[in-house]
């Protein structure tokens, strides 16, 4: 187990969104603009790293039978911290993400990593795992929100991409656009993987 490998596995091979299909609700709901996407990604990253570290620290003291409620309490604490800090320092982001900040607590990635990784590994690896998975999630958020914002609004992070003559595909910003984007991206990924594996078997 090398730290480097553990860090980058979340980017592609075990990408939480496209591969493990975890935490899709916030991905679809808050990817309407790159700004929101980055905000949501960063919030999830913070909660993931913190809860992984704390759970790994106290993993030997938690009885197996009551581990889930304890994990949930720890995760909910960090989510509330993010919520309060965001309300105090980034009010506009807090307004546009709405209840999805509180809903990080039921994001399956976080409980999933706590259960599958942090409760079995030491603090250093738990930290690396949280960081890698969180970054993988954030990158997926940025990818999806970029596609939706560029096509649906003609802008990227608020900067005009196509010039004023572009007539935006409003559908991409509305809810169907989210489903189409993720469906097509997943299908592209599966096509790409299919090609890669058939190349490997040919050789």
């Amino acid at each position: 187990m090398s730290p480097g490998k553990e860090l980058i596995k979340g980017f592609y091979t075990e990408n939480p969104v496209f591969r493990l299909m975890l935490g899709l609700c916030p991905v679809l709901a808050t990817s309407t603009s790159v700004n929101n996407g980055i905000g949501m990604g960063a919030a999830t990253l913070f909660v993931l790293v913190c809860s992984n570290v704390v759970i790994s620290l106290i993993r030997k003291a938690i009885p197996a039978k009551i581990r889930i409620p304890i994990f949930i309490m720890i995760i909910a604490t960090f989510v509330t911290i993010v919520d309060l800090v965001m309300a105090g320092f980034f009010p506009e982001l807090h307004e546009s993400l709405g209840i999805f900040i509180s809903l990080i607590v039921v994001n399956c990635i976080i409980l999933g990593r706590a259960e599958a990784y942090a409760s079995k590994n030491n603090v250093f690896y738990a930290f690396i795992d949280g960081l890698g998975m969180g970054l993988g999630f954030t990158l997926s958020m940025i990818l999806i929100s970029s596609i939706r914002e560029i096509l649906g609004n003609g802008t990227w992070l608020g900067l005009e991409v196509f010039g004023s003559g572009y007539n935006p595909v409003l559908l991409m910003i509305l809810s169907p656009g989210a489903f189409f984007t993720i469906g097509l991206l997943m299908s592209f990924l599966s096509w790409f993987e299919g090609r890669r594996s058939s190349c490997v078997t040919n050789f």
Partner: peptide
């Protein structure tokens, strides 16, 4: 188990009370 759960609840809500007292005025 009851003791551990109560302890966790106390620690988590205590730390939240602290964060709240810092951010609320702002």
């Amino acid at each position: 188990f009851a003791f551990i759960l109560t302890l966790t609840a106390a620690v988590t809500s205590g730390s939240l009370a602290y964060v709240n007292s810092v951010t609320r005025p702002r």
